[in-house]
Nucleic acid binder design. Structure first.
Lengths: 145, 145
DNA sequence: TCCTTATTGTGAGCTTCTCAAAATAAGTGC
DNA sequence: GCACTTATTTTGAGAAGCTCACAATAAGGA
């Protein structure tokens, strides 16, 4: 993959974290950016449009590494494989439709990072508040009636 | 398993939901009650203390059914199998130690079921707010220093 | 262009959980 | 208490999602 303009910003991020810029990493970051809330499986499918020889293992390795670096965020809706997104650093939440699995981003409910302050944390130092709303989306509600 | 007094309350709940009272169901409910936040695997181990022939499949079937009935609550901490508890109906939250996996219950932070009201729900009808705090517990913090 | 080593690919395998069908036992009526 | 119906459990196989070890490849510096 030649250094095209649209991916330059990811290349910089990777170098800033001491990572080599590979076509696999760029493909994964690009896939997640274009299709937020996607699973390893669908990320593999997307990357293969540009990189037919991409392997599932590479996707898992890259996703794990980039998530640890903070370039990607991972979350696990109930009864579903892990999903990834490029929107990081704002500790936003997710609403998941229990019928169709559709996922929407939800801004923090009570202002700035209030979810990081539980009433009684049992002495734990809280780093992340993972909030997932589960409900029924408008389409599924309409179909049910 | 003879109808001992201590399990009578579970037997009633099962009958109230039109379920037969079996020693496997009682064993699962008892195991989860005595060890909250336990996985299917450890529930199997606990039930086998009383029922050596208990099978993993029965545990999964029973857990799935009782969760659907509302007698048990299921939640999935990141990077961990599903955990079960008998404390249901109050939509409380969980704090998980990212080092040792320890889980603590956390009451709702902002009063009564505030978490059911996201700022923008994209038209979804929210049923559950699944909140998981991830942090480091006191023991793990002490060990690290 | 060569070299070092980070990164990816190959192949096996693990954990968690699910499905189909046969065996068992709870609850009902006699 | 005994037989009968069918819910429930067990047996056995297997899928999904993810991880590990090690060989092959390629990014970035000399």
């Amino acid at each position: 993959m030649e250094p095209s303009t649209e991916h330059a910003h990811w290349a910089e991020s990777l170098r800033a974290h001491g990572r080599r810029v590979t076509k696999q990493r760029i493909a994964v970051l690009d896939a997640v950016e274009r299709h937020p809330h996607s699973s390893a499986d669908s990320i593999l499918a997307t990357t293969r449009e540009a990189l037919p020889d991409m392997t599932a293992q590479s996707v898992y390795v890259v996703l794990g590494d980039l998530t640890e670096l903070g370039l990607l965020r991972r979350f696990e809706p109930p009864h579903s494989p892990a999903l990834y997104e490029t929107r990081v650093g704002d500790n936003h939440h997710h609403a998941v439709c229990s019928q169709c699995g559709r996922v929407e981003d939800v801004d923090c409910a009570v202002g700035h990072a209030p979810c990081l302050t539980p009433s009684d944390n049992h002495g734990m130092t809280i780093m992340i508040a993972d909030v997932t709303y589960v409900g029924v989306c408008t389409e599924c509600a309409a179909r049910a009636s």
